[in-house]
């Protein structure tokens, strides 16, 4: 019944194997929300002006909690893969919400959360200058090279 879904799931996972933010430690660390100074920065950036207002006095409208992107390592030896997003007031809560939301069925052994606003993405409009130049460099692939008959272990 859900064969379609299963199949699509595998494709999705396979296709997004390598999305690795470079800051391994920086993002993953920070379980201690109370003392995480850097952590608060991320939250405030995401919250925008309305979020910042909230701290200035009682009754201020806190607005929407900022959005975070969630990356889950499904098991040791694999990369973290983008799983989705969620709202949280700060990084510590984002991490916990991510655990509850994206690893309910033992989907993960490690979780990263990143403020959505901290992700810089290439633009689809610039797709060609970005990615097309790689297309005409087949010499980067081993299949480009012809080997004499009988050569082994190369």
């Amino acid at each position: 019944m859900s064969a379609d879904a299963e199949d699509a799931g595998r494709r999705t996972t396979a296709g997004s194997g390598g999305t690795e933010p470079s800051a391994d430690a920086g993002v993953g660390a920070g379980p201690d929300a109370g003392s995480g100074a850097g952590v608060g920065h991320g939250a405030s950036a995401g919250a925008g002006p309305r979020g910042a207002d909230a701290g200035t006095g009682a009754g201020a409208v806190a607005g929407d909690w900022p959005l975070w992107e969630v990356f889950v390592r499904s098991r040791r030896g694999l990369s973290h893969v983008h799983a989705g997003s969620l709202h949280a007031p700060d990084a510590a809560m984002a991490l916990r919400n991510a655990r509850d939301l994206y690893t309910r069925r033992q989907e993960g052994v490690s979780v990263w959360v990143v403020p959505s606003t901290a992700v810089t993405a290439s633009s689809p409009d610039e797709k060609d200058p970005f990615f097309a130049p790689a297309a005409d460099k087949p010499y980067r692939h081993p299949t480009f090279y012809e080997l004499p008959e009988g050569v082994r272990n190369l």
């Binding site: 100074a37 608060g40 920065h41 405030s44 909230a54 701290g55």
Partner: peptide
């Protein structure tokens, strides 16, 4: 509750910006 959590986060952000100005 949502306001409280946002306010807490904002205070932490403020604290990070300048240790002397911690809310």
């Amino acid at each position: 509750v949502r306001d409280a959590a946002a306010a807490y986060a904002a205070k932490r952000a403020l604290g990070a910006a300048g240790p002397g100005e911690a809310a």
